[in-house]
């Protein structure tokens, strides 16, 4: 992108309450439900565009959740039931009971709608093979490696290929599980490379922060066929403005990426998605400028929240994105 410090979202936003009420109501017709979903998608797209985001999506408003949504449409899975995430929060977990296979492009409808309704660049989030495997019970394959690679080759690759065929130019492979198992980074690397093999698009990998601060990911980055990583930094950074190392504690690991020879782009998480407090534009600016210096090339810096914002209210989420866009503007002025 020619613009310095392009801004983007990671993916999910909290769904509008009135949409959820209607789609769950058995008395509402299927036709009406389609309209309600389209309206919600349009609302998200237009809100993000009005705020000034450079790369948009629809807040994943049609998707149940990042794991359950794809698993519903893939052969070889059967839902087992719900398991706890924390406290009274649960997520559905599936068993792999046979060979996994792609049945249909389950993101086609949402992508086509966004393509028709936005003139901005579009980044399509797709759940990655490693995470799908890690969050499932495998009763079929002999090893985790085997399941991960089967998902990469037989599910994610055909899905991505189809999306690119429909016109998608940027695909973000979401891999929140990737960094939770530092010893399995080789499998993760191979899963991404197999997922994108032979497909002409810009690939972005989103990985959440885990205990080892991306230290296990860093050596793999140059070997993974991704042009950009969207990563979390804000949630362990200080809230003080400033460009010194003490103020920008959360961003130190950027230097490690460079040391390991990664020369691609980093979508830096400048907004903590786990708190309601809104970062100031000046704080965002300083985070961007620090990252630009650490990477040694401002054109490599993209700006996004740490992760999807679905756990925050819509008001807080849009305020955070708005401030992020302002912070990027301030950073551009500084670097002129």
């Amino acid at each position: 992108m020619s613009k310095m410090f392009p801004t983007q979202e990671i993916g999910s936003l909290k769904k509008p309450a009135d949409m959820l009420k209607k789609v769950k109501d058995p008395n509402v017709s299927d036709e009406e439900k389609i309209k309600v979903r389209n309206d919600a998608a349009l609302l998200n797209i237009k809100t993000l565009e009005d705020i000034g985001l450079d790369i948009v999506y629809d807040g994943e408003v049609r998707r149940v959740e990042m794991y359950e949504e794809p698993v519903r449409y893939v052969d070889g899975f059967e839902f087992a039931g719900r398991v706890r995430s924390w406290d009274n929060k649960y997520y559905k977990k599936a068993r792999v009971v046979g060979p996994v296979a792609f049945k249909q492009n389950f993101h086609a409808e949402e992508f086509n709608f966004i393509k028709e309704n936005s003139k901005r660049e579009i980044k399509v989030p797709v759940t990655g093979a490693y995470t799908l495997a890690d969050w499932s019970y495998d009763e079929h394959y002999k090893s985790k490696d085997e399941l991960v690679l089967a998902l990469a080759r037989n599910v994610v690759r055909p899905l991505v290929k189809d999306l690119v065929g429909l016109g998608a130019k940027i695909i973000q492979i979401d891999e929140p599980a990737a960094t939770t198992h530092p010893a399995e980074m080789d499998i993760f690397r191979e899963s991404i490379n197999e997922s994108v093999k032979g497909i002409d698009a810009k690939f972005v990998v989103h990985a959440c922060f885990s205990g080892n601060d991306y230290k296990a990911l860093a050596p793999q980055m140059p070997e993974i066929k991704a042009e950009q990583y969207t990563l979390e930094f804000a949630n362990r950074d200080t809230w003080n403005t400033g460009l010194d190392d003490n103020a920008r504690k959360g961003f130190h690991v950027l230097k490690l990426f460079k040391e390991h020879g990664f020369e691609g782009e980093i979508g830096i998480g400048v907004s903590d998605v786990h708190v309601n407090e809104i970062e100031s534009p000046e704080l965002i600016r300083d985070r961007i400028l620090y990252a630009a210096k650490a990477l040694g090339d401002p054109t490599k810096v993209y700006v996004n929240p740490d992760c999807g914002l679905r756990t925050r209210t819509r008001e807080v989420s849009f305020d955070k994105i708005r401030t992020m866009v302002k912070g990027a503007e301030l950073a551009r002025e500084e670097i002129k």
Partner: peptide, 9 residues
């Protein structure tokens, strides 16, 4: 997160 699990405490 409780170590490498997808569960939190």
């Amino acid at each position: 997160r409780i170590y490498e699990m997808n569960t939190f405490y």
